[in-house]
Design a protein around this nucleic acid. Structure first.
Length: 277
DNA sequence: CACTTGACCTGTCCGC
DNA sequence: TGCGGACAGGTCAAGT
């Protein structure tokens, strides 16, 4: 569930809270949640946090000593920062404690998420990162870049393409639906039939929606909270996601929920017409 | 190649 | 009240 706006919200909080802290202990309560191949966990004790970056939905916690810890929250992961103390729950998988107090707590109900320790020089070799497409909020992203990425998948349904992290980084199920409503594109439209105007519109809506969500603290379905435990407010004003049966904000037609590419998909059947060849 | 299904997990919600 | 099943959705691997 955490997509780009949620991960970015956590990133900025952790960058502020963790930078400069020294690791005093790491406790792994679920082995599959903490992947450190060939790296004794004890080797990280004493290292300091240099900063926290983000690539798509992946967080990169940079440590002294040449380590980087990648974090993917998948659907139910939470990363909570405590300035002092730090409380655990039944879902707590990993706890970092810092010298002088404070803790980073990784909760993950379903254990799909992970923390992965990687030497800094090998971060670029991570397949997930190596394949990842452009950052939609990065410099240079725009209609031309998006068009270039979409051209590789002319027959694919646009929703499946937007969910493909190698096309554009950071978009998940919630924002794919929101963005397609904003651009008035049916999620099942083949990429190749979209007009130039539609692709232009899509590129600008992607940026608008993601930026607005960051301002609102992201989306909280059930599990997502930011690093201080707060829920996000984006879904309070979402256009279609989670609003099946409610009137479309543009035309009053009832929002419907269908299945596209194996995912629950929300759209307005009136203003998102299925483009055909 | 495009698309679907299943796996990875756990919790909630629905119908009977 | 209990119980089985569908569903939730990020990513990868395997199957159609």
């Amino acid at each position: 569930m955490p997509e780009l706006p949620e991960v970015e919200t956590i990133r900025s909080q952790l960058h502020f809270g963790l930078t400069g802290r020294q690791i005093a202990a790491i406790t792994v309560l679920s082995a599959s949640s903490f992947q450190a191949v060939g790296v004794p966990v004890g080797d990280l004790v004493g290292e300091r946090v240099l900063g926290v970056r983000r690539r798509g939905k992946v967080l990169l916690i940079e440590l002294s000593g040449g380590w980087v810890v990648l974090v993917h929250l998948k659907m139910t992961g939470q990363l909570l920062f405590f300035d002092s103390g730090g409380s655990r729950t039944r879902q707590t998988r990993v706890v970092w404690e810092f010298a002088g107090g404070g803790a980073l707590v990784f909760n993950d109900q379903r254990r799909f998420g992970w923390m992965r320790v990687v030497p800094a020089g090998e971060v670029a070799d991570e397949a997930l990162l190596a394949r990842m497409g452009p950052e939609p909020l990065g410099e240079g992203f725009g209609a031309d870049v998006l068009r270039g990425r979409l051209e590789r998948h002319p027959r694919q349904m646009i929703k499946a393409t937007l969910l493909d992290q190698s096309v554009v980084a950071g978009i998940g199920n919630i924002y794919a639906d929101e963005v397609l409503w904003g651009a008035r594109i049916h999620p099942m439209s083949p990429v190749g039939v979209l007009s130039a105007v539609q692709v232009d519109e899509l590129a600008s809506v992607v940026v608008e929606v993601l930026e607005r969500s960051i301002l609102l603290g992201g989306s909280s379905m059930r599990d997502y909270v930011d690093a201080s435990g707060e829920r996000g407010a984006y879904l309070d004003q979402a256009a279609v996601f989670g609003r099946e049966g409610e009137p479309c904000g543009r035309c009053e037609e009832a929002i419907v929920k269908i299945r596209v590419a194996g995912r629950g998909t929300h759209l307005c059947p009136n203003c998102q017409e299925l483009a055909g060849p």
